[in-house]
Design a protein around this nucleic acid. Structure first.
Length: 404
DNA sequence: TCTGGGGTCCTAGGACCC
DNA sequence: TCTGGGGTCCTAGGACCC
């Protein structure tokens, strides 16, 4: 920095990079005959759309939409099953490209990352040029496109990348932040979903500018203390969060915070009212979860059971144990007790789920339960199963009730 | 054939403790 | 005595994000 500018605080240049229709783009790349057809990824039986290319979006198809509805909207679309392994490989390669720009890469999900490029400007040029370089590299190496938002804060960079879609760059200079933000719909703000947007609209707060010019107390009464304050700050572009190298999502890409909970849930192909079937599913889900816990070297104290009924109403029941555990049988026993305490008769269930919370490194917690010393050797059994699964694959070893 | 699966965080009430 | 005031933990639900 020159001496003349030394007293001027340079805004930290942050890039938000978002792959365009990631899953759909990768799917089309693998099957060039789909290049000019509407494509939907996901959408199996009782499923939702994971991703849709822009041709499908022209018909109103959106990710998260029930697959049935998407197919009605766009019957000519080709539906492709997701290949998560492939998506993972492409994502890893893309992140590698980012890391050649700067080590300060915060991976949000498979298709999204923040880059703090303040240390790269001298080497690579202004942020807008870096954005174009990254886009060209991704396109050359992966044959898919991405969009980039450039701004001084994380939240504005994210909104800018959305504005840049598809296949573009939008730079929001510091002096242009409120001009950029205030015309946007409140629903664009991070943390404002369908419900909060409707609530704010009912109050006559339609744009980000409206929120910016509303007293914090009023916002807090409407949406709660925390969110009210947060939204007021975001509406003025006030966001002090920094880019943290590593993963802020649950993708195990390293460097980020450890998981606070691990869980698994499953929607049945058809609604189920048979206790035996429900318990068998709970055992399967539990062994998946505890297996992942043991791989991660964590144990947890609180078990939460989720039950979704045929009418989509969903309840949770949880129990906190005196000691943390990673033992399949202990988590399963707790989940079963929670299920039986519901006293369901012939209720038809659409989904069940198991989650373990309060995770801590296994070495840091009390030992009896974790090591299963006073129990029935279940912990040893788990570890034997883990070893066998590593050698022969997870299909090779499973509880007897899960056979067939 | 309406509505997946992986998470995080907040709120609010009650219990309990000091 | 006539009703404090936190702080923490637990539980249930809900909103949100990717």
């Amino acid at each position: 920095m020159t001496s003349a500018g030394a007293h001027i605080k340079q805004p930290t240049p942050i890039l938000h990079i978002d792959m365009d229709a990631f899953y759909a783009s990768v799917a089309v790349r693998e099957r060039p005959e789909l290049w000019e057809v509407p494509v939907i990824v996901g959408g199996g039986y009782r499923g939702v759309v994971l991703s849709a290319n822009y041709l499908a979006r022209e018909h109103g198809v959106r990710s998260g939409m029930p697959a049935t509805r998407a197919r009605r909207m766009c019957p000519q679309a080709v539906v492709v099953a997701p290949d998560h392994e492939l998506f993972g490989r492409v994502s890893t390669a893309v992140v590698e490209t980012f890391r050649r720009v700067t080590p300060l890469v915060e991976v949000v999900s498979l298709d999204e990352a923040f880059l703090d490029v303040s240390g790269s400007v001298r080497r690579l040029g202004p942020p807008a040029e870096i954005a174009e370089q990254v886009r060209a590299t991704i396109h050359d190496e992966q044959a898919i496109t991405c969009s980039v938002g450039v701004a001084a804060t994380i939240s504005v960079a994210k909104l800018a990348s959305k504005r840049a879609k598809p296949d573009g760059v939008v730079v929001v200079p510091p002096e242009g932040i409120t001009t950029f933000l205030h015309p946007l719909d409140v629903g664009e703000l991070y943390g404002v979903g369908e419900k909060t947007r409707a609530m704010l609209h009912r109050l006559g707060l339609v744009t980000v500018g409206d929120v910016a010019h509303t007293p914090v107390r009023t916002l807090q009464r409407a949406v709660g203390d925390h969110l009210g304050r947060h939204l007021h700050e975001l509406a003025w572009g006030d966001d002090r969060r920094e880019v943290v190298a590593g993963s802020s999502g649950a993708f195990g890409l390293g460097g980020g915070e450890p998981d606070r909970s691990m869980g698994a849930q499953e929607t049945f192909g058809r609604d189920v009212d048979d206790r035996t079937v429900v318990l068998r599913e709970l055992l399967r889900l539990t062994s998946t979860v505890t297996g992942r816990m043991r791989v991660a070297g964590v144990a947890g104290r609180t078990v939460t059971l989720t039950v979704r009924f045929a009418d989509f109403t969903t309840i949770t029941r949880s129990r906190t144990m005196s000691e943390a555990t990673d033992v399949t049988q202990e988590v399963y026993r707790t989940a079963t007790a929670l299920y039986d305490a519901l006293g369901l008769q012939r209720a038809r269930l659409r989904l069940v789920g198991v989650r373990v919370e309060g995770l801590a490194p296994r070495e840091s917690v009390h030992h009896q339960h974790v090591l299963g010393e006073r129990e029935h050797g279940w912990s040893e059994a788990d570890r034997a199963v883990d070893r066998a699964a590593r050698r022969f694959g997870s299909a090779a070893v499973r509880p007897a009730s899960l056979l067939s």
